[in-house]
Design a protein around this nucleic acid. Structure first.
Length: 650
DNA sequence: TTTAGGG
DNA sequence: CCCTAAA
């Protein structure tokens, strides 16, 4: 019996499931009403619910205001509309990317230099209202705060209940916000929305860009908080539980999809060998290959690096070019002063800074025996993660849903310095080998049980073909749409689910299920090429001391007993396997043979090299003799030879 | 699992 | 260091 569990390993913590599927308006109302009824209202929930209503009201009022030439409202309107648009997207994104193998959320912070004016935040907060209650835990507190401000200014007097909740929430989040994020205003920054807007933003804006996907434009994802926040938020949010099931369901679907065997898509794979993805073999070795303790540190560092790329703040890295090409062009043009400002900023510092809050590790597919301990499960997961971070993955960049493939283009050329593009920019981790190996692999439960090997579930080739591109994310269609707790039997097919939830412009997604089925998938034997994800062990040159020990051991034991040599001289050196020792001896012999000028690395004392040659000659001869005599036992031979001909100096 | 060798 | 055929 095997316990299988797919693990979404995100450094940012857990992924919070997503939401209801009812029409937006309906969702809003339901969430709101229910919340009130239950008396268990999450602040966000209230805000969210109310937001919908407010937005609707604002929409109509704003439009009338606009016609009247009311400036302030006009601006507001813009914001609102933006919010409304965004409102829907997160959902789509979640639908699509829940489970994406590579997804990151990053944030670009932009601050205005002017803080004296009306603190109208244009933080994109629309998705709050969409996500309803379910998403509150996922919601960035920073965002929440911004939102609160917005409500303060625009609708603060709308509801007592709201105010009440708001206050509560503020208390519970404010401190954290400061600690966890850059909240203070930063000088030298410009508003990302365009210069004229810059004049109006006061608070630092936390523009949250969620990554996005190749499927959508400017789609924003919910903020992925780290564990700590998740928990903290959880206290505020009273009902996080109910939202776990969708995820599970999705997982299950995925699993079903993948579990049949190892698959590969026939069309592209004829000449490719299957790689058993992400199955580090080293961990099977007694000597702990791959990530030995010492290496752990390095890996952990990587993790930290990935996990918290800090210091973000886009302080106006917009080139005039990007500005002129932007939708805000008109606005900018009308405001010479603003343009000048941008220009100055650019001249001063045309950097684009990113704050990558977290990069999610691609989904892992882990399988361990039911009897495994939690500890071993943890280790297994850790191994997998490390294997990925240790070199098995590279970072992909997506802009407006498209993969940016040309590594040589500049950010400006690519459009990454362009503010409006930033919200469609995302980073993702993907297996390095995919580029070379267009193989789709899916873990086979039966074949992996005994090894506890973590794998990347289904990876797809990064190809130009639309089909494969689509496929790339197919395993990630962990659409957690249904809130209904499912027992264990998925009621609908993945395809159905997908199709139902996908929006028209997400064509690629819709194709997924079909593609998956259409492609001639053929089971592939597990026994094939090793995964290219397996990290090569870090090089560890032998020290003179080690060489000494090795030479000494070989002098005594000979060149055919590497295991014994290992035991005798490197017992505690886990990172030195007998194969390593054998290899080292080989190179030592070679080194001793060549001229000193040709040698590289840390010089080995000539004395040692001499001994190497002597021992090598001796044991070679010994071997020959043994071979010649053929009948003499090794033990006997060894003793006699040792006393007489051994080159050992001691 | 080890050895022995090629890559 | 890796990969593997052989033992």
């Amino acid at each position: 019996m095997v316990l299988k569990k797919r693990v979404d390993y995100g450094f940012n913590g857990f992924r919070v499931p997503v939401i209801p599927k009812a029409p937006r308006s309906a969702r809003r109302r339901v969430a709101f009403n229910k919340a009130v009824e239950d008396g268990q209202v999450c602040a966000i929930e209230l805000l969210a619910s109310l937001a919908g209503q407010l937005l609707q009201e604002s929409e109509s009022s704003a439009s009338s205001n606009a016609s009247e030439g009311n400036h302030q409202p006009a601006f507001s309107q813009g914001v609102i509309e933006q919010d409304i648009q965004d409102e829907v997207k997160p959902l789509k994104m979640e639908e699509i990317h829940q489970g994406n193998c590579a997804e990151s959320t990053f944030k670009t912070e932009v601050a205005s230099q002017k803080s004296s004016q009306k603190p109208l935040s244009h933080t994109k907060t629309g998705h709050v209202s969409v996500n309803n209650s379910s998403d509150c835990c996922e919601k960035a507190e920073a965002d929440v705060k911004s939102e609160i401000f917005e409500w303060d200014n625009k609708f603060g007097n709308y509801s007592n209940r709201l105010v009440e909740t708001r206050e509560k929430f503020r208390v519970s989040t404010h401190g954290n916000i400061k600690n966890g994020f850059k909240w203070e205003q930063e000088a030298g920054s410009s508003c990302i929305r365009g210069s004229n807007l810059a004049d109006k933003c006061s608070l630092e804006d936390h523009l949250e860009f969620a990554s996005f996907s190749r499927y959508g434009n400017g789609i924003k994802l919910g903020f992925r908080d780290d564990d700590e926040k998740f928990l903290r938020c959880k206290r505020v949010c009273t009902k996080p539980k109910a939202f776990r099931s969708p995820r599970r369901i999705a997982h299950r679907r995925i699993r079903n999809l993948m579990s049949s065997k190892y698959w590969k898509t026939a069309p592209k794979l004829k000449d490719c060998e299957l790689s058993d993805l992400g199955v580090p073999r080293y961990h099977k070795r007694k000597t702990c290959y791959g990530f030995e303790r010492s290496q752990h540190n390095a890996i952990v560092k990587k993790r930290k690096f990935v996990d918290r790329v800090s210091g973000v703040t886009s302080d106006g890295g917009f080139s005039s070019e990007s500005v002129s090409n932007s939708p805000q062009k008109g606005m900018d043009a009308d405001k010479p002063s603003s343009s000048a400002k941008l220009h100055v900023l650019k001249a001063k510092d045309s950097h684009v800074k990113f704050s990558i809050k977290s990069i999610r590790i691609p989904e892992l597919y882990i399988e361990v025996p039911e009897t495994s301990t939690v500890g071993s499960l943890k280790r297994t997961i850790m191994e997998a993660v490390m294997a990925i971070l240790g070199g098995g993955a590279h970072v992909g960049v997506l802009l407006q849903g498209k993969k940016v493939r040309d590594d040589n283009r500049t950010l400006v050329q690519t459009g990454i310095s362009c503010n409006e593009n930033l919200d469609t920019l995302s980073f993702m981790l993907e297996p390095t080998s995919l580029r070379a190996s267009p193989t789709i692999c899916v873990g086979d439960p039966s074949s992996q049980c005994e090894t506890s090997q973590p794998t990347w579930p289904t990876e797809t080739p990064v190809l130009d073909s639309g089909v494969t591109d689509t496929l790339h994310d197919s395993p990630l269609l962990t659409y957690p749409g249904n809130l209904i707790e499912s027992n264990h039997e998925p009621t609908s097919s993945l395809a159905d689910t997908t199709v139902n939830k996908i929006t028209p412009d997400s064509r690629a997604i819709v194709a997924v299920p079909a593609t998956t089925e259409t492609l001639a998938v053929v089971p592939v034997s597990q026994k094939t090429k090793r995964s290219e994800f397996v990290q090569r062990r870090t090089r560890r040159p032998f020290s003179v001391t080690e060489v000494e020990a090795l030479v000494h051991a070989v002098e005594e034991l000979g060149t055919g007993r590497w295991r014994d040599v290992k035991l005798r001289a490197f017992e505690n050196a886990d990172h030195r396997t007998y194969v390593d020792l054998k290899d080292k001896w080989k190179t030592l012999v070679h080194t001793a043979t060549i001229s000193p000028q040709q040698r590289r690395g840390e010089p080995v004392p000539q004395e040692l090299l001499d001994r190497v040659l002597a021992a090598h000659a001796f044991w070679s001869q010994h071997q020959a003799k043994q071979h010649g005599k053929h009948q003499a036992g090794p033990g006997t031979l060894k003793i006699t030879e040792a006393s007489a001909e051994r080159p050992c100096v001691c």
